[in-house]
Design a protein around this nucleic acid. Structure first.
Lengths: 125, 125
DNA sequence: ATTTATGCAAATCATTTGCACATAG
DNA sequence: CTATGTGCAAATGATTTGCATAAAT
């Protein structure tokens, strides 16, 4: 299970560094301009692989296509219910939430996410 | 836009009261036993309508099919990453999160959700 | 009588998968 | 050389939609 260094994978990773919470489709649209014969399946496969490797993060929101994030540190997001765009939430890491939890009846928490939903500045107009 | 009182809608609402965070498919499987000719589209339409009316809540998770909840008060959920089941999180309403937020750059927050992800007691075995 | 709702099938959207061929190591 | 990756098209899964018919008010 060695990963090889393909031009497609490299390109997708580089492109991710320049984009703000894109979905797979947007990454494809960007990347296809440089590598015209790349397929969408390759983009999906590589975004997922890079996320598994920890080089980017997958942001599963509660509505719309999954987004990808070049930031891999713990933080939270705001999602515009109108245009679907994702923004970073200005909230410091809230690990203390876990301490406030009571008895989880044997449920073992590994991770948590906070999603703020509302209207972004543009859509508010 | 008056809502009519159909036997299907009534049955779906009653069934919801007896189920623990089911998805639309599960509600259908339950309801079809009593009303054999009901269609899945009717179940989807009515679950969405009941949620819009506030009689149940729609729980959009970050993976898997949407779930529905007869509890309509503010609370949070734990999702098992293995079986997908949803459990109520033993966390008191955390409205103070909003106060801890900094400058949102014009993003207007209307709502927020917290999702804990992990392994439920059954899947841990 | 009029409008809302239903059942069915087809459409949609995001994503994944099978497979033959290409390529990295 | 041989395992991993790619491109394509088809499959998938959840959900929605168009439309003719049925039921509620």
């Amino acid at each position: 299970m060695e990963n090889r260094n393909t031009v497609q994978r490299q390109l997708i990773l580089e492109t991710m560094q320049t984009m703000d919470h894109p979905d797979a489709e947007s990454v494809y649209n960007e990347v296809v301009r440089i590598h015209p014969y790349i397929s969408k399946a390759t983009v999906y496969r590589n975004l997922n692989l890079l996320a598994r490797k920890g080089q980017i993060a997958k942001v599963c929101t509660s509505e719309g296509a999954d987004k990808f994030d070049f930031r891999t540190d713990k933080h939270y997001h705001m999602r515009c219910r109108n245009c679907g765009k994702i923004f970073d939430a200005p909230l410091p890491p809230a690990e203390d939430l876990l301490e406030k939890m009571g008895d989880t009846n044997g449920f073992c928490i590994e991770n948590f996410m906070i999603e703020f939903v509302g209207l972004c500045a543009d859509c508010k107009k």
